[in-house]
Write a protein that binds this DNA or RNA. Structure first.
Ligand SMILES: [Mn+2]
Ligand SMILES: [Mn+2]
Ligand SMILES: [Zn+2]
Ligand SMILES: [Zn+2]
Lengths: 137, 137
DNA sequence: TAAAACTTTGCAACCGGGTTGCATGTATTT
DNA sequence: AAATACATGCAACCCGGTTGCAAAGTTTTA
């Protein structure tokens, strides 16, 4: 269990410290993308800046990807094992306007359309907003 | 000239006050999307909260649309005349990682792909990141 | 036309998420 | 064991955004 977390961290070359294991565990357990402050609220005891630096480390090492949020904040979700956050690995994200949760639609890759000449694509965020299945029934 | 601005405001049922005309003029002149603070910096004399409320008014009346930015802030761009910001009017946005400008690709509509059952689409943001033509040459 | 009601603007204060400097604690290397 | 490097916690700060409130300007009513 804890071992699974360590595996995952090590596989992305991140030293498995206590804080990192807890943050990763929380992200995996919740199964939706979470912002810095949302994580802070769920992990009462933990310091904000530690979580902040942990998320930076995670993002730099492609353990999590950042997803733009409603008002301008950013949420984080754990990447698939093989993900390197390159354009060809990108998937859609869905933000529910009712429950305000952000879902990774990992089975729906982002198709980048042809652009006018001169635009060189490096990355993309495709965020779809609406009502999620759980709120819809 | 000023008359053109008034026309545009009136056509969206916004009373053409001095502040509103200046903010609209700046957005039209710059031809890229701008954030609250970016507008504030370009309009030295003007109060931040006036610009803030102006942008809210603009957005509520579909004179501008909001575009998510890199770090989580939001930029605003003037809508096409006929735009009502519904899904079928949405277009791509491009953020240049070098000059940090946000462009509206109004000729490139957002194609919303099929989603798993239960997801009800209301809106979408498709932001492509890379190098813009001007930085690329 | 004068008073009343409403809207816009500017100022100041505030808020909250994010970020940094620094000291302490913990692990790794020599 | 000592030296070095890395991780964590605390406090302070930053900055874009937001709000309350009063003054100035506009529109409505009597
Ligand atoms: Mn995702
Ligand atoms: Mn646009
Ligand atoms: Zn929902
Ligand atoms: Zn550029």
């Amino acid at each position: 269990m804890t071992n699974h977390l360590e595996q995952k961290l090590l596989s992305k070359n991140i030293k498995p410290t206590p804080v990192r294991k807890l943050v990763l565990k929380k992200l995996l357990d919740e199964r939706v993308a979470m912002s810095l402050v949302e994580i802070e609220r769920k992990l009462e005891r933990m310091d904000r800046s530690s979580i902040y630096r942990t998320l930076r480390t995670f993002e730099e090492n492609y353990l999590v990807h950042a997803i733009p949020d409603r008002n301008g904040t950013v949420r984080y979700a754990v990447c698939d094992d093989a993900c390197t956050c390159e354009p060809r690995h990108l998937h859609l994200h869905f933000l529910c306007l009712q429950c305000n949760k952000t879902y990774c639609l990992t089975d729906n890759p982002v198709q980048i359309p042809d652009l006018p000449p001169g635009y060189e694509v490096r990355s993309a965020d495709f965020l779809i907003k609406g009502i999620c299945p759980s709120c819809n029934k």
